[in-house]
Design a protein around this nucleic acid. Structure first.
Lengths: 129, 129
DNA sequence: CAGTATCCCAGATGATACTG
DNA sequence: CAGTATCATCTGGGATACTG
């Protein structure tokens, strides 16, 4: 069949070469860190509050990300059947286990981001190419 | 002007809500962790070696990612003008500072990935929706 | 060997409008 | 309020072929 090559590619995913890839897929896909960070910084909050704090996200995408985080068990969603409806999002116990990791990330950023910036300038100024 | 709205969205990037976003952009975009991991695990190596170890990547994409990693100062590229040409890639000193972070990631994966898996099963089996 | 050059497409993202 | 529905966009990858 003609999908043989494609199937082969799909089967040999990057995870095979890198044990941290699965975590990356779960925790570091677009918008997930701002969401988790905001939830962690401001505690349990409603949909609109998240929307307001993460200024550039659209409701559609926010919903998608929250659903995924909920499915992965990192966030809990509580629906209060009132009028108007009220929904609250909160980091789960599992999600909280990421906190040290995020702190580690922030530390690295504080210590090494300037160096990355300098490397970029050097690269961009380089005469070759 | 009609790009006003678009510009507004672009200016208010997710970084504003999350100090770790910049790191995510640099270190956790697709293919970068397998590349860094392979480089770290097997030391300095040539283009083809990377290609062979990260089985599902295409040469075009591998080149793109390596260029970006080089620009960010995480990887060094050494060109040997021989026939046939020989190019070697290696993790830089700056790139090595990520090692503890990656170890942390791997630890988290080992400890919590199963729980994520169970959460997914629960979510998918749930009767609602 | 170490890449470029093309062509192409799916899926992610966004703008906008609507609803229980 | 908390989303959903729809439509438009767009670009990151991928397949494939070629070159210094």
């Amino acid at each position: 069949m003609r999908m043989a090559v494609r199937t082969l590619r799909e089967e040999t995913a990057p995870e095979l070469a890198c044990p941290v890839s699965p975590v990356v897929d779960i925790v570091f896909s677009r918008w997930t860190t701002p969401i988790l960070w905001t939830l962690h910084a401001h505690g349990r909050q409603r949909f609109v509050e998240l929307e307001r704090r993460i200024t550039s996200i659209t409701p559609k995408v926010l919903t998608q990300r929250l659903r995924r985080l909920e499915r992965d068990g990192l966030v809990t969603r509580t629906y209060h059947p009132e009028v108007p409806p009220r929904v609250e999002y909160e980091i789960s116990a599992l999600g909280l286990t990421l906190a040290p990791l995020f702190a580690h990330l922030a530390d690295w950023a504080a210590g090494h981001l300037p160096e990355v910036e300098r490397a970029r300038e050097r690269y961009d100024e380089a005469p070759n190419r």
